[in-house]
Amino acid sequence: MKVQGSVSFLLMLLAVFICGDANSQGLRQSDEQDNVPTGKGYGVAAPSGSPAPILDGHQIQFHGGPLMVGPTPIYYIWYGDWTKSPAATNGILRDLANHIGDTPLFATNNTYHDQEGQTIKGPVFFAGEVFDDYSKGKSLSDKDVESIVQNALTRSALPEDPKGIYFVLTSADVDETTGFCNTYCGWHSHMKTPTSHIKYAFVGDTERCPASCQSQPVGPNGKGGGDGMANILVKELLSTTSDPELSAWYDGKGRENGDVCDWTFGTTYLVNNAKANMKIGGRDFLLQQNWVNQSGAGCQSRP
């Protein structure tokens, strides 16, 4: 009797598992014509159950997922050895985090809205940082990057903040083995913890591969990877806020707002023998443009 009861319960449990899995896979069958932002800088064919677009924007579609409308705290996890890098890199990126939310470039994300019509307004601000001395070695997988963020939260080095974005910034001697320098210069993702939903990004020191990940050998703020990292970091910030869970704004090719404009900068000027296209918090930067979700807009540095 006890065994029969257990078997029945087990069957029920299996049914619950199966139903739960089906629900988690979303709303529709796959469509070979649609891509999702899961590849290495390009879209890949949508897996079964990917959400269909629910609203057509201007050559970019809304798929119903949440946005990070703000305020958006930024946390840095400096991974590896940053004592050998030009000290300026840390300062450049801290300044950037504190001021990027006030720029016309960030305001381009104001053209994206969520289900309730809220747009991405910020503010964005630097909220804290921690140093990680090679806890996962010098050769990282994507999962290692996720673990680096988890470890920082577990040991309370940084607060667990579902409204924040955690940037794992690796020094030039660290490799991200899934394609850093050959396929990508940075990426963003998200993970669930027992109590929260964390958004995080990877940005490696572009000094590791200047030809691949820097638009110029020396940036407006001098030597080192600070300028190159700034460009990638802002791109990841703009994409993360408009598509934090890879379920909000992207086009039919699986490209998010920033992907469409990779390595396009618009009008530039010269400063310190380097190209720049905007001034942020007293510094000059060369930051790629962002897709503006307005009729006839395209890639721009301002709405």
Binding site: F17, T38, G41, Y42, T183, S189, D259
Partner: peptide, 21 residues
């Protein structure tokens, strides 16, 4: 089986390199 799903590599959206473009 459920737990093993949690150890999969995370989905990510990368910024392509200048050379890939």
């Amino acid at each position: 089986a459920q737990s093993s799903q949690a150890t999969e590599e995370p989905r990510k959206v990368p910024t392509t390199t200048r050379l890939v473009k």
